[in-house]
């Protein structure tokens, strides 16, 4: 993985400190071209990996990047699923209704033999189908790491449905020839759980920042786990939703031994340049 990964929250109105800023960003990026323009700036500044949710609008980015020599070194790390799509559907349609709506084709024809009865017996195949559906738009795009979104990782973790984490891991590795990654807000618990399930040195993305924001169980527990280097780690929310000044934020995370990559999102050239520059210089001085 590259040292610096570019995130997508700013494009889709996700802002952990201000709903108002989120709305302003939604307006600014309602045109797909505006997203692509910022990605081009990120590339100019030397960032070649875009980590993004499987939001419908990413299809546009995929279409621009695909078969275009300008983007031959450009990588996309899809994070699935875009959970609000499902959460809102479950409120409206119930769980079965949601499965019916999102599994490609008709559940009953997809599983030609036995339809619903078959589906009930084979959640793993169903999960595989949903993963494939989410990844469809990335066909022909370089996606070396494919992530499970934190809300799903942490839901499965809390429910103790560890075999689905393993199903995702195996499916992504075998069918999509990519490295499976898990985004989480519960790094220590997830790492212990994955190791117990036989997955060693997993790829994990977690909130890591100087003020301990969204580091469940506390910063000290996290720092201890990070120092043990038992996983390939991407740090996210390094700015703690804007609570930390960039210099302080990037110094902390860039000098933390055990963090492989750093994820951040920004909308302006100035912010992208500054963030990338800070990470590079602090990483260099940390050796």
């Amino acid at each position: 993985m590259d040292r610096v990964l570019f995130g997508d929250n700013q494009f889709f109105g996700v802002n952990h400190s201000s709903d108002e800023k989120a709305r302003a960003q939604t307006i600014r990026f309602q045109n797909n071209k505006a997203i692509m323009d910022v990605l081009d700036i990120a590339m100019d500044e030397g960032i070649n990996t875009f980590m993004c949710t499987t939001h419908d609008r990413i299809e546009y980015v995929c279409n621009v990047v695909r078969d275009n020599p300008k983007y031959q070194d450009f990588k996309i790390y899809p994070c699935m699923p875009y959970a609000h799509k499902y959460a809102n559907a479950v409120t409206e349609l119930g769980i079965l209704g949601t499965v019916k709506q999102f599994v490609p084709g008709n559940v009953f024809s997809t599983f030609a033999k036995g339809g619903l009865a078959f589906m009930k017996k084979d959640f793993a195949s169903l999960a595989g189908l949903m993963i494939d559906a989410e990844l469809k738009m990335f066909k022909g795009v370089n996606t070396p790491v494919i992530w499970m979104q934190n809300v799903i990782t942490d839901l499965l973790l809390g429910l103790g449905m560890v075999d689905f984490l393993v199903t995702f891991y195996n499916h992504v590795k075998e069918k999509h020839n990519a490295e499976p990654g898990f985004i989480t807000m519960n790094l220590p618990l997830l790492l212990d759980t994955l190791e117990a399930a036989g997955i060693s040195n997993p790829t994990i993305c977690a909130s890591i920042n100087k003020i301990g924001f969204r580091m469940s169980g506390g910063k000290e527990v996290y720092e201890k786990v990070i120092a043990e280097k038992r996983c390939r780690l991407v740090a996210m929310q390094v700015l703690a939703a804007g609570a930390l000044p960039p210099k302080e934020a990037f110094e902390y995370v860039s000098t933390l031994d055990g963090v492989e990559s750093i994820l951040f999102g920004a909308s302006s050239r100035a912010n992208i340049k500054q963030s990338k520059g800070l990470i590079d210089s602090f990483s260099l001085s940390a050796g």
Binding site: H16, S17, S18, V151, D154, L155, G158, M185, N186, L189, I211, G212, F213, R214, M215, S216, G217, G218, A240, A241, G242, A243
Partner: peptide, 15 residues
């Protein structure tokens, strides 16, 4: 005032 300054960590975070 932002949530980052007003919230305490929980042991397990989901949503």
């Amino acid at each position: 005032k932002y949530l980052t300054d007003l919230t305490e960590n929980v042991n397990f975070y989901l949503r």
